[in-house]
């Protein structure tokens, strides 16, 4: 079953083309990495997937709901973590999450149960009462992921979720999100860091607004490494980044 479907999507900022006839699908319960150097069009694609931008060229469907014709159904199936943090630093973890639940129209007893469950999944339950300001970068990100699960989405979108984190926190987040995929959630993970991707993960390579490859990381790497394969596709124009070092 297809959880996320992008068909022939193009987008331009005035005369500047950001996405050019992009098509791919992500199967339900898969971890799919959107791999591309900076400026490849990843953030634009995320804006289209979350309806911050819309385009008339192409079709996007989330869990079978077309985002153009039934945006509310599509958005209710998405949990999203943007590159930039969207937390209220002066509220506690729990308050941040209940505010988010309210924005999704969830109320009553269900809220607390869902918040607890989401925090449990990210090993963050004991931090519920702490102010977000007192959390370190890694914990803040984990909290954002937990928050994105409160409305029980089918697809989790993460746009460069590990930017600015140290190696240990990066590994922890990557591990947690892979666990979520194993538990049945569909994950779409944008990154320019090759080492966050496991061989069994699906990969969509985006470069200069076009899809350059769609296969599993293992088959993309072939005999060599994923880094080499990625470099071969994009290095002529832009060097890749490995292990958080740009």
């Amino acid at each position: 079953m297809t959880a996320l479907s992008v068909q022939n999507v193009s987008y331009a900022y005035g005369p500047k083309t950001a996405l050019d006839d992009v098509s791919f699908e992500v199967g339900a319960g898969r971890f799919c990495a959107l791999l591309g150097p900076n400026g490849a069009g990843k953030s634009t694609l995320f804006a289209l997937l979350t309806r911050l931008l819309v385009t008339r060229r192409g079709r996007i469907a989330v869990a079978g709901h077309d985002i153009a014709t039934s945006p509310r159904s599509a958005l209710s199936k998405i949990g999203v973590i943007f590159q930039q943090s969207t937390l209220d630093l002066d509220m506690s973890v729990a308050r941040n999450m209940s505010y988010f639940a309210a924005l999704h129209g969830i109320s009553g007893r269900a809220v607390q149960t869902r918040i607890d469950a989401a925090l449990d999944r990210l090993d963050m339950r004991e931090r519920a009462g702490e102010k977000v300001r007192s959390l370190n970068g890694g914990h803040r990100r984990r909290m954002e992921i937990a928050r994105a699960l409160v409305h029980e989405p089918e697809v989790l979108l993460l746009d460069e979720a590990t930017v600015g984190l140290d190696t240990a926190a990066r590994l922890a987040i990557t591990g947690h999100v892979h666990d979520l995929a194993e538990a049945g959630l569909t994950v779409f993970w944008a990154t320019h860091l090759v080492d966050e991707i496991r061989p069994a993960d699906d990969v969509v390579v985006l470069h200069r607004g076009r899809v350059r490859a769609r296969e599993t990381a293992g088959s993309l790497a072939g005999e060599g490494s994923l880094t080499d394969a990625f470099m071969a596709m994009t290095a002529a124009e832009a060097p890749p980044s490995v292990g958080g070092v740009p």
Binding site: R72, V80, F82, Q84, T86, L103
Partner: peptide, 18 residues
């Protein structure tokens, strides 16, 4: 600018209502 507006704009409730 800080990004927190996105939380509001990506909610499934109608944008006009939010």
């Amino acid at each position: 600018e800080m990004g927190s507006m996105r939380l509001l704009l990506t909610s499934p409730l109608p944008r006009g209502w939010l």
